[in-house]
Amino acid sequence: MKRHLLSAADLTRDDAELVLRTAEELRSLADRPIKKLPALRGRTVVNLFFEDSTRTRISFEAAAKRLSADVINFSAKGSSLSKGESLKDTALTLEAMGADAVVVRHGASGAPHRLAHSGWVRSSVVNAGDGTHEHPTQALLDAFTMWRHLGALDGRRVAIVGDVLHSRVARSNALLLQTLGAEVTLVAPPTLLPVGIDTWGVETSYDLDAVLPKADVVMMLRVQRERMNASFFPTAREYSRRYGLDGKRMRMLQDHTIVMHPGPMVRGMEITADVADSDRSVIVEQVTNGVAVRMAVLYLLLSGAEGVTGTDESENDA
């Protein structure tokens, strides 16, 4: 693996599968009496959150702590950290504290990339969501959840439905799922598909009903009601009617098809309560898997010798 995880595109198929296999081993930890491993003892992980996301921060925090890392939470909420120049100053502060990894959530696309490549810090940088760019660990946990339910993803059909334009989850998933051999279809009204999507290597559709019967996975994206004020769609009601997943649409799915959502859900907007709470829904499991996947990422980025990442398969170490 590379030293940083900034984009799902940083992961080769081997890298991604290594993360999934490692996560599988780490997931069993949740069932053990002592939910802690010593791998990152003495390492410091900083959660640098310029955007409020309690869910993601807690997930990373739990992951780092279960690997015995020291965790420092650095939140922009209620402080002066929101303007551009402070990203650099904050980075220099973290560097001075001796952070080994910086998990960064930022409202500006590319902020983690800047952090990793501008010479401000030497630590590994993990993108925990940047603007409308990417959220690679979310894609990894989504792929992990699919993999646990469906096995290998080669040839599996994944429909990602909703506000693709503003979704970092959709971008990372489109990249990672293709790396893992899945066939991705992005479903949205034309206003919510980015320009140039024809180069992404994915299918696109404006018609949810045509896509659902063939899908093995349906991933619903959050759609903010406020988008309606910028004329991305006329009304929330019309959006739900055309692109929302309700009980009637759920009955079009194959028996094995699972329903996912990266959260937080807008119930009644993109997904109805009966679907979110149905047997097909793996939304709660996604949260559990998030910790295991983030443990795997932190372990693989940080546990080895400094400046050396990648895996060593040599065994003559008895």
Partner: peptide, 22 residues
């Protein structure tokens, strides 16, 4: 699996985990 408990964890690249089944 003892990978994470090895005393030479820091001296080599990160290693893939192997199964632990109790």
């Amino acid at each position: 699996d003892v990978t994470m408990y090895r005393d030479d964890l820091r001296m080599k690249p990160a290693r893939a985990l192997l199964p632990t089944e109790i």
